[in-house]
Design a protein around this nucleic acid. Structure first.
Length: 466
RNA sequence: GGGCCGUUAGCUCAGUCGGUAGAGCAGGGGACUUUUAAUCCCAAGGUCGUUGGUUCGAACCCAACACGGCCCA
C-alpha cells in the first residue's frame, strides 16, 4: 500500500485554535447561514486518549497543538494510530462539552507517515543533553520551547537582513575556501583541492574579501554566513559559527556604533516585542544608545593600564594570572581584558579606542598614533562583535602586516600572515570605510536567554561516539 | 589541560550491605459512551557506556578508557 504523497489545503493548527477561542463549550464553528465550517489539519500525534467509542488525539504542527475528537463510535473504533504517527484529518472546529478547543473529525485519520519506533516519554520529554544534541530532531519534536528558540533565531536573522537591505546594503557571497586566511586572530581548518592541486583554508572571517568589494565600488555590502575556527569548544564557541560582517563606505567607526546599537535594539524589539532580555541571571536592556568605555580606561579601572610589556606581565603575574602563553604586550593586554573587564560588561557596552598592536586593520586616531579607531561591543559579559574605521592606505596596511609578522616570530601563532593581494587592492584606493562583525549565535543566545551556544545551533559539534 | 558529576529497557528514572534487574511512559493484546500525563487488566521488553582487575559472586568496589555536563585554566 502506498501512502499519500501530499496533503493539500492544510490549515495551521494555531490559526484554527484562534478561530474557536470565542466559542461556548459544546459549540461548533459556523459560517454565515449556520453552515458548519471545515478545516484540514496535518501533523504528528503527540497524545492519545482512547475511551473505546470515543478517541481523542493531540495533533501538533509547527504552529501549535490541538485536540482531535473522534466521537462517532464506528469512526473511533477505526482510529488506529500510535504516538508519533504523522496524520492528516478533516473535520469541524469547535469546543468539547468541557470547553477544550478541538477539531471534530467525522472520518478516521489519514495516515501520512507511520512511526516505526517509539517516541521518547511524552510527559518528561527528552532531557538528556547529549541525546538532545545528537538527535536534535527528537529534541525539536518533544520540546516546544526548543522549537520556539530556533524559530526566534530564524526570525532574528531575517530581521537583520531586512534592516540592512532597507538601508541600502547589498548582500554578497565571498569564498569559503580561501588561499590565505585572515581578518581575525584564529587558527584555521585546512582542506585540499585535488584539481587545483593546492591547499585551501576554510575562512575565519569574510573581512578581506568584503573590503575588496568596497574598493570595487559596491559601497555598502554585508555577508551573513559561516566562519570556521579550529579552536576549543565552550559555551560561547562552536568550531563553525554564523557571522555577520558589513562594510559601509564613507563612514567611520562612530557611524558604525550608531548603526549596530540601533540594529540590535530594533531587531530585538521586532522579534521579542521588547528590548529587555534575561541572560545568565541578569536583566539586560538592549535599547540604544549603549554605554561607551575607552579601552585604556577599562584597564585603568583595574590598575592594569600600561604600555610596558614587562610591567604589565609583572602586575598580572602578581595577581596569580598565568602569562606564560602571552608572548607579546598585545596578548597580555587581551588576556587582562578577558579576565578583568569582559565579565563585568553586562549591560550593552561599546569598548573603544584599542591599542594599535591588537588591531591590524584599524585606522589610527588623530590624537594618538598608538591608539586606533576600533571598538568591540559586549553584552552579558560576552563579546558580540568587533568594528573599526578600516585602513584604506596600502602602505599603512603593509606596515601593519609587517608588525603582525614580528608578533608571529615572537611566538604568537594567531597573528596575521599578511595578504599581498589585498594590499595591492588597496593601492587602487578605497573610500574611508566603517566595518563591523557580529556573532549571530551569541545574539541568538541573548534573544532566547540560553546559556550555551549549543542551544542556538541546531547541530553543534560533538565528539564521535565510537 | 585540571577538578567534580553523570552513563541501567525506545524515553524518564529506582536499584539498600556486593547475592545474579525494577517502575512509570511508549510499543503489543484486551476492557471502557466527552478524555486532558484518561483509567483498568494481561503479556513482552536489558551486552547495567567499554575494557581490565578484586571477589565464591560485581549495575554496585578498584583502574584505565570513551562520551556528555558543570566549574576552573
Amino acid at each position: 500500500m502506498s501512502l499519500p504523497k501530499r496533503f493539500p489545503d492544510r490549515d495551521e493548527i494555531a490559526g484554527v485554535r484562534i478561530e474557536v477561542e470565542h466559542l461556548e463549550a459544546g459549540a461548533y464553528l459556523e459560517a454565515e447561514g449556520g453552515v458548519q465550517e471545515r478545516r484540514r489539519l496535518a501533523g504528528r500525534v503527540m497524545a492519545r486518549r482512547d475511551m473505546g467509542s470515543a478517541v481523542f488525539l493531540d495533533l501538533v504542527d509547527r504552529s501549535g497543538r490541538l485536540q482531535i475528537a473522534f466521537l462517532k463510535k464506528e469512526v473511533a473504533k477505526a482510529v488506529d494510530v500510535k504516538l508519533g504517527d504523522v496524520i492528516g484529518v478533516e473535520g469541524v472546529p469547535g469546543k468539547t462539552r468541557r470547553g477544550e478547543p478541538s477539531l471534530f473529525a467525522d472520518e478516521g485519520p489519514l495516515l501520512l507517515s507511520p512511526i516505526a519506533t517509539s517516541l521518547p516519554d511524552t510527559f518528561h520529554g527528552m532531557t538528556d543533553v547529549e541525546a538532545r544534541y545528537r538527535k536534535r530532531y527528537l529534541d525539536l519534536l518533544m520540546n516546544e520551547d526548543v522549537r520556539g528558540d530556533f524559530i526566534t533565531r530564524s526570525r532574528m536573522i531575517s530581521a537583520i537582513r531586512r534592516y540592512l537591505d532597507d538601508r541600502g546594503f547589498l548582500e554578497v557571497e565571498t569564498p569559503v575556501l580561501q588561499p590565505r586566511y585572515g581578518g581575525a586572530f584564529a587558527r584555521p581548518f585546512t582542506t585540499h583541492h585535488n584539481e587545483l592541486a593546492r591547499d585551501f583554508y576554510l575562512r575565519i572571517a569574510t573581512e578581506l574579501y568584503l573590503k575588496r568589494l568596497i574598493v570595487g565600488g559596491l559601497e555598502r555590502v554585508y555577508e551573513l554566513g559561516k566562519d570556521f575556527r579550529n579552536e576549543g569548544v565552550s559555551f560561547k564557541h562552536n568550531p563553525e559559527f554564523t557571522m555577520l560582517e558589513w562594510y559601509e563606505a564613507y563612514a567611520d567607526y562612530r557611524d558604525t556604533m550608531v548603526l549596530i546599537e540601533n540594529l540590535v535594539a530594533d531587531v530585538t524589539h521586532e522579534v521579542l516585542g521588547t528590548t529587555v532580555v534575561q541572560f545568565r541571571g541578569s536583566e539586560i536592556d538592549l535599547k540604544a544608545p549603549w554605554r561607551r568605555l575607552k579601552f585604556a580606561d577599562a584597564l585603568e579601572e583595574h590598575g592594569l593600564w600600561t604600555r610596558d610589556e614587562a610591567e604589565l606581565r609583572r602586575r598580572l603575574t602578581e595577581r596569580g594570572i598565568d602569562c606564560s602563553k602571552d608572548p607579546t604586550w598585545a596578548k597580555l593586554a587581551d588576556h587582562a581584558l578577558s579576565v578583568y573587564v569582559e565579565p563585568g560588561l553586562i549591560q550593552p557596552t561599546i569598548l573603544h579606542d584599542y591599542p594599535v598592536e591588537l588591531s591590524p586593520f584599524a585606522r589610527r586616531t588623530d590624537d594618538d598614533p598608538g591608539i586606533v579607531e576600533r571598538f568591540e561591543y559586549y553584552v552579558g559579559g560576552m563579546e558580540l562583535g568587533n568594528a573599526y574605521s578600516e585602513i584604506n592606505d596600502h602602505a599603512d596596511q603593509a606596515e601593519r602586516f609587517a608588525d603582525q609578522l614580528k608578533d608571529r616570530a615572537a611566538g604568537d601563532a594567531e597573528a596575521e600572515e599578511g595578504d599581498p593581494d589585498y594590499v595591492e587592492a588597496l593601492t587602487y584606493g578605497m573610500p574611508p570605510t566603517g566595518g563591523l562583525g557580529l556573532g549571530i549565535d551569541r545574539l541568538a543566545m541573548l534573544l532566547t536567554g540560553r546559556d550555551s551556544i549549543r542551544d542556538v545551533v541546531l547541530f553543534p559539534a560533538l565528539r564521535d561516539r565510537s
